[in-house]
Write a protein that binds this DNA or RNA. Structure first.
Length: 481
RNA sequence: GUCCCCAUCGUCUAGCGGCCUAGGACUCCACCCUUUCAAGGUGGCUACGCGGGUUCGAAUCCCGUUGGGGGCACCA
């Protein structure tokens, strides 16, 4: 039997990093087993639905190279893959559960349920539906307070539900006693619990891989599989990604919870994927730098940790820097273009392309994320009238710097060949031999005047790229103190 | 509150009874290299939460405790 797994995000906003995390582990197993990976959109929550969210999910997973075999955009033998388009699929199963006595109607208003829970908390007993509606007709129920016109359908949880199951990652797991979960809402939409079971069965899902937060509702799902006479899939509950304070990773506390953030900051998809694979997991080889294929080949559920890892940006930055350094120069240049364009500096001309190509080797080891290119190459791409020397650099390097800058300018002015070598030779002759300065001391003011900062790519190379005119202008017009 | 899950350096992890005076990576610190900043090289700091067992022997097994997390929705 071929293995079929799925990821089932809800289109409720910016795609979540957890979706990518789950997809990675799903896919690592699927590709190893030669099975299929399904992308299903769980849009049963009308209130939180966001129209553009679905496309963003597609875009982000594609960006990461996590390709699904079936989905709303691709189609497949079990279409449709949006739950909102499958409403009629769920109905007969609800009716069967009702007919078999496994489910019942409930007319309780949200207000009544709210009061009931508050009362239960006060009395320090487990919260759960009190079955006021169970066994009653609408007329009987309507005589009591807190009754609405349109009912929901609830599961009738037996006294001995399956509270025990085998998890691929955790082994034997105990789950809590469920309460009478709503499976069909008043608006006619199924809740997650019903929809996920029906769809997983109908779509032939063999392994349910999801976050640890679902352990507590697994008994409900087990019950539904059993009641409907369906074979239970295997379960793997992944650890939850955490914020630095160890709470479940959230968009509120952590910018990295939004997948689009990584694109904006200039993380490479291969670095993020590698990093995600390092969270709660390690390769048998101990290797920390690996590709998806390498992870997939040796993938093993029992190697997944049960502890929720903190999403540590420091390590991701290092990894990203590593991958940036591994890139071919023209590849890196291409990936930098969007950031320079965004800054308004890059027009795609041959001149700009050449400038960028020349700078890549100078900055490749100096970036942790691609967006840093903006600061690194400001001196080179910024319009002349917008060029300013950082006040910190002025204070640190340009105090009494007129003699050095003048000597440098005078030595560079007559050059006929404007190459790195010629520039360095001329500068060294004028400043080291001429003024008797050490190289560090001599280059500092020149760097500040030309690059506008105490931190910059190697100086002669930078000057060569900038061009003679601009270098001389900056040297002679520097804001010397 | 209640139920469930979990517990090795600051962080990510290796470890699945003896190979552990606990290994690797990131971070941090020092040094080297060096025109700044990086990158690179070398070295260093830092952990088995606690208490009981079991065993010749425990980071590894059991119990308790403490701590953390998650669930308890007509959200997923």
């Amino acid at each position: 039997m071929t293995v079929r797994l799925r990821v089932a995000p809800s289109p409720t906003g910016d795609p979540h990093v957890g979706t990518a995390y789950m997809s990675l582990f799903n896919l690592a197993f699927v590709r190893q087993q030669g099975g299929q990976f399904v992308l299903r959109i769980e849009d049963t929550d009308r209130a939180r639905f966001r129209a553009d969210s679905e496309q963003q999910v597609f875009d982000m997973l594609s960006w990461l190279g996590l390709q699904w075999d079936e989905g709303p955009d691709k189609g497949g033998p079990f279409a449709p893959y949006r739950q909102s388009e499958r409403l009629e699929t769920y109905q007969p199963h609800v009716e069967k559960l009702l007919a078999d006595g496994h489910a019942y109607y409930c007319w309780c208003t949200p207000e009544r349920l709210q009061e009931m829970r508050e009362d239960q908390q006060r009395r320090k007993v487990p919260t759960g539906y009190d079955r006021l509606c169970y066994g009653k007709t609408f007329e009987e129920r309507a005589a009591l307070p807190g009754c609405s016109d349109v009912p929901v359908v609830r599961m009738l949880i037996p006294d001995d539900p399956p509270l025990h199951f085998t998890d691929l990652i955790r082994g034997e797991v105990n789950a809590p006693m469920p309460d009478d979960q709503v499976i069909l809402k008043a608006d006619g939409f199924p809740t997650y619990h019903l929809a996920v079971v029906v769809d997983d069965h109908l779509m032939g899902i063999t392994h349910v891989v999801r976050g640890e937060e679902w352990i507590s509702s697994t008994p409900k799902h087990l019950l539904l599989f059993d009641w409907l006479g369906w074979e239970r899939p295997a379960f793997a509950h992944m650890p939850l990604l955490r914020n630095v304070d160890k709470s479940k990773i959230s968009k509120r506390k952590n910018p990295a919870a939004r997948l689009t953030w990584f694109v904006e900051q200039g993380y490479l998809p291969e670095a993020l994927l590698n990093f995600l694979g390092l969270l709660g997991y390690s390769l048998p080889s101990g290797e920390e730098i690996f590709t998806f294929s390498e992870m997939s080949e040796s993938f093993d559920w029992t190697r997944v940790n049960t502890v929720g890892p903190v999403f540590d940006l420091d390590k991701l930055s290092w990894l990203n820097g590593h991958y940036i350094r591994e890139l071919a120069e023209d590849d890196l240049a291409a990936r930098l273009v969007p950031f320079l364009t965004e800054a308004g500096w890059y027009d795609g001309s041959a001149e700009h392309a050449a400038l960028l190509a020349g700078s890549v080797p100078l900055i490749q080891t100096r970036m942790a994320v691609l967006s840093e290119v903006v600061d690194l190459l400001r001196f080179l791409f910024v319009a002349d009238e917008d060029f300013v020397v950082d006040p910190v650099a002025v204070e640190k390097s340009l105090v009494g710097a007129v003699p050095v800058l003048t000597a440098a300018a005078d030595a560079l002015e007559p050059l006929t060949s404007w190459s790195t070598e010629a520039i360095q030779t001329a500068m060294d002759a004028a400043l080291l031999d001429g003024l008797g300065l050490k190289r560090g001391k001599a280059y500092a003011p020149v760097r500040a005047a030309v690059c506008g900062s105490t931190i910059a790519p190697p100086l002669p190379e930078s000057m060569a790229l900038l061009g003679k005119d601009r270098v001389l202008r900056r040297l002679r017009g520097a804001p010397v103190l």
